[in-house]
Design a protein around this nucleic acid. Structure first.
Lengths: 143, 143
DNA sequence: CCTACATCCTCCAGTGGCTATAGGAGCAAG
DNA sequence: CTTGCTCCTATAGCCACTGGAGGATGTAGG
């Protein structure tokens, strides 16, 4: 009765690509599902839910290892959610920092682009700011 | 007379790590410098400037191939800076988009963390929102 | 001159999180 | 029965580095 679906259907249902699903199985994030006679993976509702959970977590920028922790917490509902809370809070801090850093970056790029007089490279603000770090206002930014 | 420096000094002077300098040489971003009798790389002021240019560009999030283009533009000062301008503009758009996307992410993480009553996992907003994509307000976000 | 020790060299493997390709097997419809 | 789709495994590639092994060279002190 259990309406098992093939990997393609699971992919469609969850938005996780087929090779990615196999990859998640390989790294132990998704348990190896039962196979059909013809050796094909069959997934059920629970697997799909797990994949959705993973996808959403990845979209929020959690690392695989953090997702591993979050999943194991989900499996034991009676436990305190302090750890989940801590992971989410840490990610929130990261995101806030990245926003700050990207805003500095945005400001500098804007300065570069606005300063471009569309003339020759020799007087181009874009090139000049890149070349001369002293003309750069901010000090620490990453991707 | 040319005050050539060893790779370690070049690294110190530019903030680019030693293995990264060698890597840039390997991929053709930095020209192979002359060597001493003992086979050690010696860099001059121009090389250091180039490394600084590269580092700064990387900090602003430009890809290696874009930096390749920017460097080749710098080498030919008489040319129009339209291409440099276009690269910077494209990056600016990317950065703006990323900021928007991270703000959506920030909002959702905040909702998760605020909703956490510090009780059991079974009633934890953090886990619940991750599990149920329907509870998610936004639709498209990346790292 | 000899000994430590820092710095340098090359080569190769690993990181994260997938993504793509090759080469084949199974399955459903016409 | 054939066409064409989906599936399987295994392996390699992506980006931009980073680290380690194992050995050569340079330098400062005794």
């Amino acid at each position: 009765m259990s309406h098992g679906m093939a990997i393609g259907k699971a992919s469609e249902a969850t938005g996780v690509k087929v090779p990615t699903i196999r990859y998640y199985e390989q790294i132990g994030l998704l348990p190896p599902p039962p196979r059909t006679e013809g050796n094909r993976r069959t997934y059920d509702r629970k697997d799909a839910d797990r994949l959705t959970f993973i996808r959403h977590s990845r979209e929020l920028g959690f690392e695989i290892d953090q997702i591993r922790t979050l999943l194991s917490l989900q499996d034991r509902p009676g436990q305190s959610c302090g750890e989940a809370d801590a992971i989410a809070k840490a990610r929130l801090v990261e995101v806030k920092e990245k926003i700050t850093s990207l805003k500095a970056l945005e400001a500098e790029l804007e300065r570069m682009v606005e300063g471009c007089s569309h003339g020759r490279v020799e007087s181009c603000q874009v090139i000049e700011i890149l070349a001369d770090h002293g003309k750069c206002k901010h000090h620490q930014h990453d991707t």
